[in-house]
Amino acid sequence: MNGRGRRTAERLVAAAFALTVLAAVSFAAVYVLGNQTQLLGLALCLAFAGLAAGFAVWAARLLPQGPYVEEREAMISPPEARRAFTAELDADQEPVVRAALPRRMLMLALGTLGVALVFPIRSLLFHGPTPWRALRRTAWRDGVRLVNADGAPLRPSDIALGGIVTAFPEGRLKDDHAMTVLLRVNPARLALPRGRKAWTVDGVVAYSKICTHAGCPVALYVQTAEQLVCPCHQSVFDVLKGASPVAGPAARSLPQLPIGVNAEGVLVARGDFPTPVGPGYWRSA
């Protein structure tokens, strides 16, 4: 490269690094003056961009350009080296291979130890019931009162026509698994599966709020169509027909909670959900 071109390139590189100096100073100044995320980011961006440009021009205009050629050795040893290698392996293996009893016992020892060391993985589930027991049932029992998210007992009149209320078993406000939605519909329009006549109170129905697809809370109620919609993958459940799935990837109905009113006029469960709630898992029922 001639002297002129070289000098221009050097000046370019210097200018790029000067940008870094300015940007770095600005970064420090912005930091001291306050917390302005955009300006901080911009300053760091320019500081690194200056370095990048400087290095790039330096590499392209001021440093030796190839192409250079480097020899490459084969990624395999020459045949005689390989033969010598296997011969060596075989020779040294002899005394090991011949000692069959200690060798087999070593294998057994390592295998047993390996299996034994798997056991502590069980500690990861260090309290609470085992999976199938926990998944099968919820906290709902006959007579357990339904309360809202603030813990206040719910009466049928708390659920307006077209309204939706999330209910928990009394005293278990954090129990995600037992989460239930209460909806009021026109009782004459209800077409529940057979045997569920007594599971509702004046058109108030209760369904598990956990989507049977992948477990999201079924939080949207399209009142006009009387459908529950899951926000995650848009599964739609028909409230009038026992929350059976009508669209989207969910394949099973939301389980229905049998409800009634107790002597104080408060909504209570009449037992647990008839089937396991939430996303499916390996089970025979």
């Binding site: 961009a49 370095l51 990048a52 290095f55 790039a56 350009q65 190839g66 192409p67 250079y68």
Partner: peptide
């Protein structure tokens, strides 16, 4: 293998790339 040597040309080019990546992520 035909190309540029690690030192100095490729090294500088790679430093440029590293700074460019940082410029993009911080930007």
């Amino acid at each position: 293998v035909v190309g540029s040597k690690m030192w100095p040309t490729y090294g500088f080019r790679s430093l440029a790339l590293m700074c460019a990546v940082f410029a993009v992520t911080f930007g």
